[in-house]
Design a binder for these strands. Structure first.
Length: 278
DNA sequence: AGCTGCTCCTGGTCGC
DNA sequence: TGCGACCAGGAGCAGC
């Protein structure tokens, strides 16, 4: 599933492949992918040129001239491809941007969970998920004191809070499990029981882990490829995700898989000790 | 206001 | 072998 590092790699690939191209026509093959009415989306984008590709959290922001932006969220399995118009269209292709140069930017999504929406550039805050999005997990934007304050307000498990994009943006199921293992925090620990020192380490681990994953090209689980068709390498650096039954790298205790807030959760039962309510 | 549970989807896996 | 049941899960939303 694309999380921040994967989306960032898609962004870089797309920027390389589509900036400067102009839309000639658009085919919407599965209407629910596009939030706007089809005609609004088409009328707005035909004849527009792509001038940039930005990212905020897990959202891609494809910039067009005339102050237009397509906000695109890949959710579980969304991906972009740039193909020649003669390349066969596969059954999971849902939106096709036909370009004036004969290439096509195609959006593919096996589960059809992804969404894209046309907005006026600068109106990003009108998009539901973007208006409440938490800080980017970088040293310049992710403030540890605000993070601590946010966690103090909640008594529910730390894991679902990290998945909540309002607290910090960009983490998904894989990187939450990984960072909690790095910080030696049990995923079910109530957020307000974490000490300042633990929150500091968690904060630092989130930043370094996501940066490392971005630099590795992201994690390739199942079939994730970035827009240029390259697989990431970060899956080779995972410590707990998908490693149920394998020995923990720190203490050799077998990794366990449990459910936390309806999500498959991997952790080491020896070095991630659960705190009980006081 | 915080939290839970439901919804969207399809491919893969499991049991019979 | 075939088929149905069930699971995976990000985020938006309804409802308590």
């Amino acid at each position: 599933m694309p999380e921040l590092p994967e989306v960032e790699n898609v962004r870089r690939g797309l920027a390389e492949l589509v900036i400067g191209k102009t839309v000639k026509d658009i085919q919407i093959l599965w209407s629910k992918i596009v939030v706007n009415p089809d005609e609004v989306f088409l009328d707005g984008l035909v004849d527009r040129q792509i001038i940039g590709v930005d990212r905020r959290g897990k959202y891609l922001l494809i910039r067009f001239d005339h102050d237009l932006t397509v906000v695109s969220h890949l959710r579980m399995e969304g991906k972009y491809e740039v193909d020649d118009q003669s390349a066969p269209v596969t059954k999971h292709t849902h939106v096709i941007f036909e370009m004036t140069d004969g290439t096509q930017l195609r959006y593919l999504d096996t589960r059809k969970f992804g969404r894209m929406q046309l907005i006026e550039t600068g109106q990003e805050m009108t998009v539901a998920g973007l208006k409440t999005l938490g800080p980017e997990p970088t040293p310049a934007t992710f403030d540890v004191h605000q993070f601590y304050q946010a966690l103090q307000k909640h008594h529910k498990a730390i894991k679902p809070l990290l998945l909540d994009q309002k607290v910090v943006s960009g983490l998904g199921n894989i990187y939450v499990d990984e960072t909690l293992w790095l910080s030696q925090i049990h995923p079910e620990t109530p957020a307000d029981l974490l000490t300042q020192a633990e929150v500091q380490k968690l904060h630092d681990d989130i930043i370094t882990e996501l940066q490392l994953a971005i630099n590795s090209g992201g994690t390739t689980v199942n079939t994730f490829l970035n827009a240029t068709g390259h697989a990431g390498a970060f899956q080779e650096m995972l410590h707990v995700y998908g490693k149920k039954g394998e020995p923990c790298e720190r203490c050799q205790t077998p990794i366990e898989k449990i459910k936390v807030a309806q999500r498959g959760t991997h952790f080491c039962p020896h070095c991630q000790i659960r705190k009980e309510a006081r």
